[in-house]
Design a protein around this nucleic acid. Sequence first.
RNA 1: CGCAGGGUAGAGCAGUCCGGUAGCUUGCCAGGCUCAUAACCUGGAGGUCGUGUGGUUCAAAUCCCACCCCUGCAACCA
Length: 564
Amino acid sequence: MTKQLITSALPYVNGLPHLGHLVGCLLPADVYARYQRVLGEEVLYVCGTDEHGTPSEVGAAKENMPVDEYCKKYHDLHVEMYRGFNLGFDYFGRTSSDQNKEITYRIFHALDKNGFIEEKTTKQVYSPDDGRYLPDSYVMGTCPHCGYEKAKGDQCENCTKILDPTDLINPKSVLSGSSNLEIRETRHLFLQLPKIEAELDQWIETKKGLWPDIAYSIAKKWLKEGLKERGITRDLKWGFSVPKEGFENKVFYVWFDAPIGYIGITKQWSDEKPTERNWEDWWLKPDEVRYTEFMGKDNIPYHTISFPATLKGTGENWKTVDFLKGMNYLNFAGGKFSKSAHRGIFLDDAIREFPADYWRYWLIANAPESDDTNFSFDQFAAVVNKDLNDVLGNFINRVLKMTEKNFGCQVPAIGAITENEKELYQTLDNLIADYKRYMDGLEFRKAMSTLREIWVSGNNYIAKTEPWKVVKTNLEYGATILGTALNMIRLFANLSAPVMPETAQKMLALVGAEKTPVWPTEKMETYLKELPAGKAFTPSDPLFQKILPERVEELKIKYKETEA
RNA sequence: CGCAGGGUAGAGCAGUCCGGUAGCUUGCCAGGCUCAUAACCUGGAGGUCGUGUGGUUCAAAUCCCACCCCUGCAACCA
């Protein structure tokens, strides 16, 4: 059986993640991983914090901490927040681990041996007052084209022209504000992407029509424009020192070792139980693994070009991505979420406001798959109230209450069935097949709208059969209806488990079904009779609570949705 | 300027590849039901499909051309 390897783009350790990070890569990957597990597949879902690079060094300096302590602190905060949202990683590691260093070196040496690494002298801005080289975007000055005074060294935000830091008038360090800047010559190592361009192009071409448009078209765009060699080393202290003579005091560029981190993190995982786990089974046996990557659109070039080139250039048999799920952005009040401006909704706040499953359902049902999507509390409340409370929650509640009143807290025996049940079986069999097809294709919005239809079919069945009337005249058929409905709660739980794990768990417990969600493989004719008659169930309070209009208004003010 | 994605009822989306009665959810209106969380079920109104008295075609949301608007990206921001 093919194993399922799943990764989501590694969140940068600096600062705290927001809903955009969650929906862009972490949550869809988790839903997909859970779905595969429910199907009974062997799954490995790894993720972790991306820790190297200038922002970590600068952030640590600001908090007066050593960089490694700083990264550990934020790594732990990430872990805590993701736990709150029930992200079920098999392992959540770090790109700064020893294991990642080992794999990074191994890959670098192979690339070097194969002639994919070349030395080159470049000009780089050095700031004596900051005591460091500055990345282009850390230099600010006046744009020579439009006169905009806050143009950054890589691009002017105002006129969008691409710049070189040396083009800027009155350049200053973004960090210290110092205008005492030097241009220094420095030697660096470059990955020779042009050498592998043709091979990459052929490979991407095989993904046409399979990958989401955004993933294929962004990759093709880069290839069409022609690949350029790419620097993979930096003049920083924080990072893996470069194992090559003359470069020992430099480190690898964060974008070189970050995607390799998927492999390094897998090794962290397998090193914990070396007798049972082997990272090579996942990364060096490509025919036995299906690899699915999740990421926001900004990450697509790195995962379609740089990372595959890095792996292919080694000449070794590394696993490369089979399916790449690229997501657009989630916006807030018409603008981007922003870490630096703390604009939008951050995970620690989100989880204090509502249970994880409310967010998980909304985010997946409204995932920015084909276009950027806007988050608003009005919309959030509308969806939670309608889909979760009215459609699903109310179905469960009415069925449990009616059964309790007429048959006590146990599953009534299902007797002779009628056309109503046959119709229900047929409807559900079809909808479940649709739902599975969408989940297999990672079409989350369509999957969620189908899941919702499945829930609606429960209410339809109740409305049509009118058990509250039937029990007065035909107790036996009343038992059949409510018994069937209780079995539907189990069905809904198993189907909803990937997106709402906590709620699904509660639902399964309510009707005394299996503890671990399992995909329904039988036809409904069989499946909806499987809860044994007489099995006790637990009366319960409603699973969801509505978000009232006053609350929505409070939230809008609290998170500055209206003035943002 | 270039490239990519998007522009379809009040709102949020599908349909566009492969042309053939414009669909779904929500909101609104009416009816049904009264087991249930003022909920559920059914029906209805609401759209010149960004613009062009553009092109192709028997037929265009869909293909072609031009233009406008929104979002994002451009390799040292992860």
